[in-house]
Design a protein around this nucleic acid. Structure first.
Lengths: 254, 254
DNA sequence: ACAGTATCGTGAACGACGTTCACTGTCAAT
DNA sequence: ATTGACAGTGAACGTCGTTCACGATACTGT
């Protein structure tokens, strides 16, 4: 720490050479801490060590700064998470070929959203507790709603479908927190074997179907699971779109 | 992942061992602290003050005991959460009239699951991180799989549908953490008004559909949302059940 | 050019958290 | 009566988010 005091000016140390010829105003501030740098470093940290490692102290350490310094740029960890979330959502490509059938547009967007969330493990968990209203979140919402709207979904139905799809993609990735990129404890064969064994050991008088279906219930291929579930969802939406809510539809509302 | 049942031969029987195969119970200890009392108190705490208030120290305090004492009965907070989760899932009534159409059976079960999760706000969040393999979780899985199986879904499809439905119900309640029963900040009218105002203030050149659909996108009636989403899901499943994957289904694999 | 001021990072602390551990009682069985 | 297993105690350790007075720095208006 004592090294730190003397090391602190070193950030602008090599810049002193060029300092006297008065860099133009457009010249960037000398690597000062700002909100963007904090968020970017938090993103890097989350990408490398996972969400549980997202710690004010850890972010501060990576920036070569004392923990309390972060609070000059971010009000709380909660706010940092909000910024983080919108930063991640910004990575979703929202451009889409509007010539495609609306169902395909939805599927493509859902896949993109899922991929981005999968690239930042744990971030999906943030979306369940802080609902995203940042600019990029809204852009994403717009991208989803546009096909639904032109497909003829009325207001409430479109909103419903939107939440359904996004909620599916988010919910699918929630809890997918592989600690590190190196530590692949996902799909650990030993764990899977023990799981299968566990299923076979179940008493088939109490769980006949469970034993009958066996280990096939717990699908290991996540991509396949996402794809299939998405197909079911969109199928249901298509059925709604073609047959617009005429019959016993709101029958058993609470 | 994390079946988490590492065979650790402890003196008093391993924690997870009693999750399954009712432990011999060995006659009641004195009016002493036992695992059941700890779990029960944690459930009461979670019901009164919400999941974030679930703290080892808080549970200990309610039991009139020092924090470290809990570790005689529970290996860690993580395990306490597992026990908690299975305790909550035990409240789901899994009896169902098998004369009903399979789609209705699924819907009834999903509603019951949702209701129980809503009764214990925040518990759904536990399910996303600790996948439930306790006895009551398995009973619930059996209840869901039985109608799907008799409906003719093949193995993988049944498993997929099961995860889809349960994941939907769980995901729907995840993040529904109203802090206290008294503090009803959910559906706060002021917040809702500000939200509507916010939507009207959006630039309609960047978010045309979003502005057009307006505040109807954010449905306030959660019951209606759950019901409608569930209908869409089951619709999609029905389409699959009747027409078993024939047409352009795997067209746009990534 | 200089004083005034706004801002930034520091260092140290506070309280709460999960968890551990040596110790002390309190019984049941020998 | 001695032993010994065990439940609960008290105190600590290391972590976390957050706050705050204090200097140091950079920018401003005059």
């Amino acid at each position: 720490m004592a090294v730190h005091q003397t090391a602190r000016p070193d950030r602008r140390g090599d810049a002193n050479a060029t300092l006297w010829f008065s860099a133009p105003d457009t010249g960037e501030r000398r690597a000062a801490l700002n909100r963007e740098r904090v968020v970017a470093e938090a993103l890097a940290l989350i990408a490398q060590e996972g969400v549980p490692a997202l710690t004010m102290r850890a972010v501060a350490a990576r920036l070569g700064v004392v923990p309390g310094a972060l609070y000059r740029h971010v009000r709380s960890k909660e706010q940092l998470q909000d910024l983080l979330l919108d930063g991640v959502l910004a990575e979703v490509d929202c451009t889409i070929d509007r010539a495609l059938p609306w169902a395909d547009q939805i599927k493509v967007l859902a896949h993109r959203l899922r991929d981005v969330l999968a690239d930042h493990p744990g971030v999906a968990g943030l979306m369940t507790v802080r609902d995203p209203l940042g600019p990029h979140s809204l852009t994403l919402a717009e991208a989803f709603l546009q096909p639904l709207h032109t497909a003829g979904f009325p207001h409430r139905e479109a909103g419903l479908a939107f939440f359904l799809i996004v909620g599916y993609a988010v919910g699918f990735e929630v809890g997918n927190t592989r600690i590190s990129v190196n530590e692949q404890r996902v799909q650990d064969p030993a764990t899977r074997r023990r799981l299968h064994e566990f299923f076979r050991s179940l008493p088939d008088d109490r769980f006949p179907t469970l034993v009958a279906l066996g280990e096939h219930v717990w699908l290991d291929n996540r991509d396949e699971r996402f794809e299939a579930g998405l197909d079911v969802l969109v199928s249901g939406l298509q059925r709604r779109a073609t047959a617009p809510s005429s019959d016993a539809d709101a029958g058993l509302s609470a």
